[in-house]
Structure formats: C-alpha cells, structure tokens
Lab assay of single mutants.
Amino acid sequence: THFTSQQLQELEATFQRNHYPDMSTREEIAVWTNLTEARVRVWFKNRRAKWR
C-alpha cells in the first residue's frame, strides 16, 4: 500500500503519542486518513518493528 504524505503525517503523529493505539483509536485514524482499520493496524505493527 502506498500512503500519501498526509496519511503518513497523521499516522506518524499518532505513533509519537501512542505506539499501541486501541481499536477505537485505529478506527478514528482510518476515518481521518481514508484507510481501512486493517491497513492502519498493519502500519502500526510494521512501524513498531522499525522503531525497535
């Protein structure tokens, strides 16, 4: 999946605040970024792996 810079900005900003967002937070992010909750969940999983 290719993310727009706007989507990445929103995802990264949320990641800085919370590395493990809950389901409702992921659903909110999905609405803001026009992505599915599953895409958001996978992005956070991959981002945490990169962060370690």
Rank of each mutant, 00 (worst) to 15 (best):
L11A: 01
Q16W: 11
M23A: 09
Q7H: 05
R26N: 02
A49H: 09
Y20K: 04
S24N: 13
Q6N: 08
R48Q: 06
F44P: 00
F3Q: 02
F15Q: 01
A30H: 02
V42D: 11
L8W: 10
Q16C: 10
E28W: 12
V31Q: 13
Q7D: 03
H19Y: 05
R52T: 09
N46H: 13
W43P: 00
S5K: 14
T36L: 04
H2W: 12
L11P: 01
E12K: 03
E27G: 06
T36N: 05
E10W: 15
W51G: 06
S24R: 14
R17A: 09
N34K: 10
Y20I: 01
A13R: 14
N34Y: 05
E37D: 03
E10D: 12
A38I: 12
T36G: 04
W43N: 00
A30S: 05
H19F: 05
E37T: 04
F15V: 01
H2G: 13
Q6A: 13
W43M: 00
T14I: 15
H2N: 10
A49G: 06
F3S: 03
Q9S: 11
H2T: 10
R48N: 04
T33I: 12
S5F: 13
A38G: 08
P21T: 02
L8G: 02
R41G: 05
R39H: 11
R47Q: 04
W32V: 14
Q9Y: 13
E12H: 03
R17H: 08
Q6K: 13
V40R: 00
Y20F: 11
I29T: 02
A30Y: 03
E10S: 13
E27I: 14
D22Q: 06
T33F: 14
R47F: 04
Q7L: 06
F3D: 02
R41F: 06
A38V: 10
M23Y: 13
F15I: 01
T4F: 04
N18F: 06
R39T: 13
Q7C: 05
E27S: 11
E37W: 04
N18E: 06
E37G: 03
W51I: 06
T25E: 11
N34W: 04
L11R: 00
W43Q: 00
A30T: 02
T25W: 06
Q7A: 06
V42N: 12
T14N: 15
L8I: 12
F3I: 10
M23W: 11
V31D: 08
N34R: 07
T25R: 09
T14L: 15
E27K: 15
K45R: 12
T33E: 02
R47N: 01
T33V: 12
I29E: 01
N18L: 07
S24L: 12
T4E: 04
W32D: 08
E27Q: 13
S5I: 12
D22H: 05
E28Y: 09
Q6C: 11
Q9G: 07
K45V: 10
M23P: 05
L11W: 02
Q9R: 12
A30V: 02
E28T: 11
T1W: 13
R47W: 06
T4H: 04
R17L: 12
R52W: 11
Q9W: 14
H2P: 11
E28C: 10
Q9E: 12
T36E: 06
R17N: 09
E10A: 14
A13T: 09
A38R: 13
A13I: 10
R39E: 15
P21E: 02
Y20S: 04
D22G: 06
N34Q: 10
P21F: 03
W43Y: 02
W51R: 05
W43V: 01
T33K: 01
P21C: 06
A49W: 07
F44A: 00
E37P: 08
P21S: 02
R48M: 06
E27T: 12
R39V: 14
T4R: 03
H2E: 12
Q16I: 08
T36K: 04
T33H: 07
K45E: 07
P21N: 01
N46L: 12
S24W: 08
A13W: 11
N34P: 01
E10K: 15
L35M: 10
T14V: 15
L35G: 04
H2C: 12
Y20T: 05
E28G: 07
E27W: 09
W32C: 11
F44T: 00
T4V: 02
R39G: 10
A30C: 06
V40H: 00
E10F: 15
A13Q: 09
A38Y: 13
F44Y: 06
T14A: 15
I29G: 01
R17D: 08
L11I: 02
Q6V: 11
E28I: 13
I29Q: 01
E37S: 04
T25S: 08
V40P: 00
N34D: 08
R26V: 09
A49T: 07
V31P: 00
L35C: 07
A13P: 01
R41A: 13
I29Y: 03
V31Y: 14
A49C: 07
F44I: 01
T36H: 04
L11E: 01
R39F: 10
R41C: 07
W43D: 00
W32Y: 14
T33P: 01
P21I: 03
L11F: 02
R48D: 02
E28S: 09
F3G: 00
A49R: 15
R26P: 02
F44K: 00
A38S: 12
W43F: 02
Q16H: 12
V42C: 09
I29M: 03
E28D: 09
R48S: 02
T4I: 03
R26T: 05
R26E: 01
N46Y: 14
Q7I: 08
E27Y: 11
Q9P: 02
V42K: 15
Q16N: 08
Q7K: 05
Q16R: 10
T14Y: 15
R26Q: 03
K50E: 15
W43H: 00
M23E: 09
T4K: 03
E12Q: 02
V40M: 00
R47K: 05
V42A: 14
Q16V: 08
Q7M: 07
R39Q: 15
F44S: 00
R52Q: 14
V31L: 14
A13F: 10
E37Q: 06
T33C: 10
M23C: 07
Q9N: 11
M23K: 15
H2A: 10
V40E: 00
T36M: 03
E37H: 04
T4N: 08
H19T: 02
R39W: 09
W32R: 15
A38Q: 12
E37C: 05
T14P: 01
H2Y: 13
D22R: 05
S5Q: 12
W51L: 09
D22S: 09
R48G: 02
A49E: 11
L8Y: 07
L35H: 04
F3N: 03
V31I: 14
E10Q: 15
A49M: 08
F15G: 04
A30I: 02
R17C: 11
T36Q: 04
D22Y: 04
L11N: 01
A30W: 04
T1I: 10
Q6S: 10
T1K: 14
H19K: 14
E12P: 00
R41N: 07
R48C: 00
H19N: 05
W43L: 00
V42W: 14
R26F: 07
F15D: 00
W43T: 00
V42R: 15
T25G: 06
L8R: 09
A13V: 08
H2L: 11
T4Y: 05
T25H: 08
R48W: 03
W51Q: 07
R52Y: 15
R48H: 04
V40K: 00
